[in-house]
Write a protein that binds this DNA or RNA. Structure first.
Lengths: 189, 189
DNA sequence: TGAATTTCTTGATTTTTATCAAGAGCATGG
DNA sequence: CCATGCTCTTGATAAAAATCAAGAAATTCA
């Protein structure tokens, strides 16, 4: 079973047969380091599941890059508003390492419901879960200092700090690279 | 047509007859100033639509109150994770003024699909839309100063500053009341 | 209405974080 | 393997925002 099949099976409680039907709608896409899976303004008509590698979702604001999220194995790479509402992509999604994604096109995605009647419900639950994750992130920004946000991410996924350029993590945490560097020094000293 | 019926009609493109069927599942609930529509840890088994009044969604963190959102006419008052996943409420929702809500219980909410076959799809779109709003808010915190966040909210809804205690707006913007006070002075001077 | 309470503002000060600048460390590709 | 870019760290300084304290303004409600 691939990582994707396992994800669908365990998160959506889908039977092995149905999992196979769904996963057959996906195809493997490999990206080289630096390749863009998606660019701002382009059609966001596919959804990727990260089987291997690391991607960065970011956007240009006021002449600087803002990293919204880092996607690793087991995460999805998708511009949700573009994919769901057929709007131009808001985010750039770029491979930070060589990547292997399972990718589905919107037209195939829309057929999952035929394979899996309770798909609309599962899809709702999935998006609702994403919503609550963002709620937590908002609360974190309203109530925690840069140092606390750093520790929270570090405790959640320390490995990230060895895999991703620190400047991107700094941006994702809402601080400058210099501040992150000092917080790391402070934490290790 | 009530505000709720109008909302369902225009946002979900539902026919007048179906709107009436859906809205019949809601009942009117009035709250006095200070009343709680929901409390952290309690069952989050109902969803409210704000017909009139102002509510505050907040949570206690590290001995302080963090205001996540202010809901006014046309917004929903709901703890999404609790309502959808049947988990204890994460948020307190309290009336800041006298309020009139259209309220639906979870068991009735789950029957909307019988009135409106494409409800699962509409519900998904609705939650996805909420997700994108939070994405924007995250980006704002990653890329904007307190002053810029203040101006953005003020430009979006200046009336709020005359209707809601400023300390709550300050918290929702991720700054102290003193900082908000100074930014307001600076902006008006 | 008027006293009590809460909220808001202002000032002084400290802490946090950003900015600017320079150098050190690393990776990468010719 | 070395030169060239990046990236990261460090230091000095500036700016932003928080904290603490006190008084003014507004609100509440008895």
């Amino acid at each position: 079973m691939t990582e994707l099949e396992n994800y669908i099976h365990t998160n959506f409680g889908v039977t092995k047969e149905d999992v196979a039907k769904i996963s057959s709608l996906f195809r493997v896409v490999t990206l080289k380091k630096g390749d863009f899976f998606l660019k701002t303004g382009h059609h966001a008509d596919r959804l990727g599941f990260v089987q291997m590698g690391i991607l960065r979702e970011f956007v240009h604001i006021d002449n600087k890059e803002v990293t919204k999220w880092i996607s690793t194995k087991g995460y999805f790479a998708v511009d949700l508003s573009g994919f769901i509402f057929q709007l131009p992509a808001r985010w750039n999604i770029q491979a930070l390492t060589e990547c292997e994604l399972y990718v589905i096109d919107r037209k195939d995605y829309q057929n999952i419901g035929q394979v899996l009647p309770r798909w609309p419900e599962l899809e709702k639950l999935f998006i609702a879960k994403c919503f609550t994750v963002l709620e937590d992130r908002i609360i974190q920004h309203l109530s925690k200092s840069a140092e606390e946000r750093y520790h929270q991410l570090f405790n959640f996924n320390a490995a990230l700090f060895n895999q991703v350029p620190l400047q991107y993590l700094a941006s994702m945490l809402g601080m400058t690279p210099e501040t992150l560097s000092r917080l790391r020094k402070k934490a290790s000293g």
